[in-house]
């Protein structure tokens, strides 16, 4: 029994009939072809699938498409206008906050959430805030530096 859903994804309206069990991450990747959102675990631990649902971070592997009917979704592809970088993306670039890049979309969107909740986080708050996003390459240190720089930029200058 398919469920009709109507969503806005990166500003574009999308109507589909979906299998009730279709996870949001599979809807984004397989139905819409937005493959920036990744899957890296089965158990909601890794955060690679993080997207914004009505501006708030969610793990799209732990969310049915049907549950977010009517919502506005932002994926990594829609965080900044094409050809431009969001200050968070720019900061990850400047501070070498990524290596293989697989966790990066989720990490960037988790950073977006962290800074939404706390625009001026301490190092400890950054590390705690990113506990739900796993990275196997960086040891997190340059991710922390990236978040610090993003916070500075987004607050319009030095703290």
């Amino acid at each position: 029994m398919a469920v009709p859903v109507s969503l806005t994804v990166n500003g574009q309206s999308q109507q589909r009939d979906v299998d009730p069990r279709l996870l949001l991450v599979h809807f984004l990747r397989d139905v819409l072809g937005l493959t920036g959102t990744k899957v890296a675990c089965d158990t909601s631990q890794c955060g690679a699938c993080t997207v914004l649902v009505d501006g708030i971070a969610a793990k799209s592997c732990t969310c049915l498409t049907a549950q977010v009917d009517g919502a506005s979704i932002t994926t990594i592809e829609g965080l900044a206008a094409p050809g431009t970088l969001h200050p968070i993306q720019e900061a990850f670039w400047n501070k070498h906050g990524l290596q293989c890049g697989f966790c990066t979309p989720g990490m960037v969107l988790a950073t977006h959430e962290l800074l939404r909740q706390n625009p001026n986080p301490t190092v400890e708050q950054i590390r705690h805030g990113l506990e739900g996003n796993l990275c196997r390459c960086t040891g997190y240190q340059n991710i922390v530096r990236s978040v610090q720089e993003a916070a500075k930029t987004m607050n319009g200058g030095a703290r």
């Binding site: 993080t50 708030i56 971070a57 969610a58 793990k59 969310c63 988790a110 959430e113 739900g132």
Partner: peptide, 9 residues
Amino acid sequence: IGDMAVRNR
């Protein structure tokens, strides 16, 4: 509980 994104939902 969990992490930021888990707590959101």
